[in-house]
Amino acid sequence: MTQTLLAAAELWRPNTQSSTIDFQAGFYGECETLRGVPSQSAIALDQGPLGQVASTGQPMIIEELSELGFLVAEAAEAHGLGAAALLPSYTQGKVESILLMYFRRGADAKCAVELWAGTKGRFELSLDQSFHLGLDRFARISHYVNFPKGAGLPGQCWETALPSIVPDLATAKGFLRSSGAESDGLAVGLGLPIMQRTELRSVFLMLSSAATPIARVHEIWMEDPEKPGVLTRSQGVYGGLVDLANASNELVFAVSDKDGLPARAWSSEQPVLLDGIEAMSEAGLKRFDAVRDAGLSYALAYPVVVVDSVRAVVLLMG
């Protein structure tokens, strides 16, 4: 079974009444040492990276996991984790929750986790923060590239305020770093705009190889323009999981019934995490048999909200 570079994730929520940031949910895969850390961690609203994201609303990538606390650093060392990304979700312009994702290192791993942000006085995006594994040349190139609105994957997400999947980075005409992606073996790219009402805070990218994917399944779900309240898949990449891809072709979700992960994230306007095959079974996934047979053990749904309205849901499984 292919091990994904996305090793674990947690959902945290700022609590202004207690002036704390409270743990809500998580998935951990094989990271059992990390699983027990949140229950031992009391995080003040102004403390560490989580507090910084809660107060500024800006997403963040960190490579020094000790910034998240001593217990996290110990767990990270035990499980070979090398970086984390923190993505805020907003309700009426305020940070309602923070998705914390942990990425593992590996001797043969190749991936890029990037944040692209606007430069003051210039109408283009430049690399703001990043984590690159096994991609020295690609990383160097990235620091000299800028994306106007509509150009490349970051510029496309900026222009449309929608997420996008590039299934083959090496051959994609709209991916401006395709030659670097081809030489370094990158395959799949996911772009995710982080929007606060109508303002783009940044574009979050995850790029990985077929051999060491960040996730095994990447999907984007959007509302059917002819059937309000019904979600259909607009894009999907399945990494060779043919049965799961086939089971997804005609699938739809009703938002009003909170039917399935995309619908739950859409209706709540907040990320949803499932940890383990039992949790997936209890959630009543329509594709449960195909998910189980593929050996998947986690699912993460992240809604893209613009002006307090969900535009799309990104679903990752691994």
Rank of each mutant, 00 (worst) to 15 (best):
L81R: 01
N146T: 14
V113L: 07
Q92I: 06
A112K: 00
F103W: 11
L133I: 08
L125T: 11
D128S: 15
H132Y: 15
R104H: 09
S89Y: 01
T119K: 14
F147R: 03
R104T: 06
Y90R: 02
G150K: 08
L86K: 03
E96Y: 04
E96A: 13
E96D: 12
T119Q: 15
A151F: 14
G121D: 12
G155C: 07
L153P: 01
A73R: 12
H143M: 08
G93C: 05
E74T: 07
A76N: 09
G155H: 05
S126G: 15
V145L: 15
N146F: 15
P154S: 06
Y90P: 02
V72M: 02
K120P: 10
E124L: 13
M101S: 11
A112Y: 00
A78Q: 15
K110R: 11
F131M: 13
A73E: 14
S130P: 01
D108Q: 15
R137K: 13
W116S: 07
C111R: 08
K120I: 12
R104C: 09
Q129C: 03
L86F: 13
Y90Q: 08
R105I: 06
G134F: 09
P148K: 11
M101T: 09
G118T: 09
W116Y: 15
I141Y: 13
R137I: 12
F131T: 04
A75K: 10
E74L: 14
A107Q: 13
A83K: 01
L135F: 03
A78Y: 10
A73C: 09
A112P: 00
A117T: 08
F138G: 04
G82C: 10
G93A: 00
A73H: 07
A107C: 03
K110W: 02
S130I: 00
L81H: 06
Y144K: 03
A78T: 12
L135C: 12
L86W: 10
S130T: 04
Q156M: 02
V113H: 04
E77K: 05
A109Y: 04
W158R: 07
A85M: 12
L133G: 03
